[in-house]
Amino acid sequence: MTLAELVRRLDLTILTSLPEGDVEVTRGYVSDLLSDVLGKASEGAIWVTLQSHPNVIAVASLLNLSAVIIVGGIIPDDATLERAREASVPVLSTQLPAFEIVGRLYQLGIRGNVDSCVDG
């Protein structure tokens, strides 16, 4: 499913712009521990978290993640959004808690995986 379609189907709020052109999203990861994401999220995955500080963007950018969904209606501060724009990381927001949004992503065909950084 494309990122734009996910945004529409899940009624996500776009906090920084989506990239031009279609981005296909097939994988997802949910965690609030940055090292856990670094070690396990696969390239292109969509990341669900309640963290909203600038380091989230650094991690998403390093791993070439497709987008970050910040849960629970949390709106990141300007520093985070500015960093996201610089790094072209789409930041999305939902009022839903993590469990709920992940369930809906799964229903739309997004899957997790068990990649480690070595074979990812």
């Binding site: 521990l33 940055l34 090292s35 856990d36 070690g39 380091n55």
Partner: peptide
């Protein structure tokens, strides 16, 4: 609280 300090830094380096 920022999601650091999970005790995975050096283990992640080792894996990579």
């Amino acid at each position: 609280q920022m999601g650091f300090g999970a005790g995975m830094g050096l283990p992640n380096m080792q894996k990579c």
